[in-house]
Design a protein around this nucleic acid. Structure first.
Lengths: 205, 205
DNA sequence: CTTAATATTAAGCAAACGTTTAAAAACAAA
DNA sequence: TTTGTTTTTAAACGTTTGCTTAATATTAAG
């Protein structure tokens, strides 16, 4: 028997990941992927049974390594302020390496029953935010912050961190940013975003 | 000469708008659009010369009527607090009517030179936020708020309002919301978002 | 009615799509 | 080498894509 993970199979996966994220599921063709992996079309369907199957394979794996670790930070056992700074910093650095990840995920989730739904659910990305809500309740009981809905705070955090990457092209156009100044803009938000979240929490009414 | 805007041409435009927003440019086929408009494929290319041309026509128009009016609110001559509440309220109501607009725009802007770039630029959506920056500077000089970068504040505002719609499907899954409770969640943000923005501005830290 | 412009239709084009086939090449174990 | 399995290739399959053609209706004016 040959080695279970041939070099070709891995090259196809990498090419698929790159092109799916870059152009979306339907705009990345099997021929694109084969060419990018320096093989031919038949091999894509030899190792993976279909384009759909390749898509699932690639991203179930890709997501367990990227989004999930940072998504869990909100349920970690850390002081509130530390947690928020860590969350923002970690996601920001992740996205600076992979800026098209957010627009890719949200694009594929379009149409109610997108291919990513199952993937995300079985990857455990849909955990309730009970732990985070409890921490916010405790802080509110201590009078450190106002009583808040954790879902709203969580939404705010994700929004403030992800949106600059989601709208990267528009931001670059509107404010005439190149890659360097965009990275600068995003780095500034490592302060702006936590301060925004904390200012809201500490503003007692 | 026949009337310049036949009923058929208008039906095609409406069908195209609906399907482009719903499924994106490349996932909405000419046959889809023709069927939805209750005509045939040839007529789509008779009135508009190509699918690309139809796309541009439809959305140049659609955007001048939706996004631009609310985008200009930030440059209106209004007190800061009033302006922010008005901005959030107007965009939120707009998006409750057209929830897929944000994900559509950002999806089509993927790939650096998406079809929307020219459209947005010639629609004037790329105006600099000089007026808003000046207002923030004046308020800071008066000591009402801290000195801030208007681009960051603008980004925060857009992020907090648009993101719930961008991630609508994920939010619904994660928190088990139906259409009604999602609308409720979004309505709560008409208070949460302005309070978040203002808490940051007024926090002189 | 005649005529010419406009609107609509059914049919078909070439190209690109995801996928399959059948044969060749490479490889490992006997 | 022989045998059997795995990997790779070139070619083609049937569909769907955006778009065009050529013929037919419809309309309005002279």
């Amino acid at each position: 028997m040959a080695k279970s993970h041939s070099n070709t199979e891995e090259k196809i996966k990498e090419a698929a990941r790159k092109l799916f994220v870059e152009k979306g599921f339907s705009n990345a063709t099997t021929r694109d992927i084969a060419e990018c992996a320096e093989t031919n079309i038949a091999l894509v369907n030899y190792y993976f049974r279909s384009k759909e199957n390749l898509f699932q394979s690639v991203f179930q794996e890709s997501f367990a390594q990227t989004f999930l670790p940072v998504a869990r930070i909100l349920n970690d056992d850390l002081p509130l302020e530390v947690k928020i700074y860590k969350f923002v910093d970690n996601i920001t650095e992740l996205l600076k390496r992979d800026p098209m990840l957010p627009i890719f995920v949200l694009s594929e989730m379009r149409g109610e029953h997108g291919a990513m739904c199952q993937t995300m659910q079985q990857a455990g990305a849909m955990e309730q935010s009970a732990g985070f809500q409890q921490q916010l309740d405790e802080e509110a009981a201590k009078g450190n912050i106002r009583p808040v809905d954790a879902r709203q705070v969580e939404t705010n955090l994700m929004a403030l961190v992800l949106f600059p990457f989601l709208s990267m092209n528009i931001l670059k156009m509107k404010h005439q940013l190149d890659d360097e100044t965009f990275a600068q803009f995003v780095d500034e938000r490592k302060k702006v975003v936590p301060e925004t979240i904390l200012a809201y929490l500490r503003n007692k009414g």
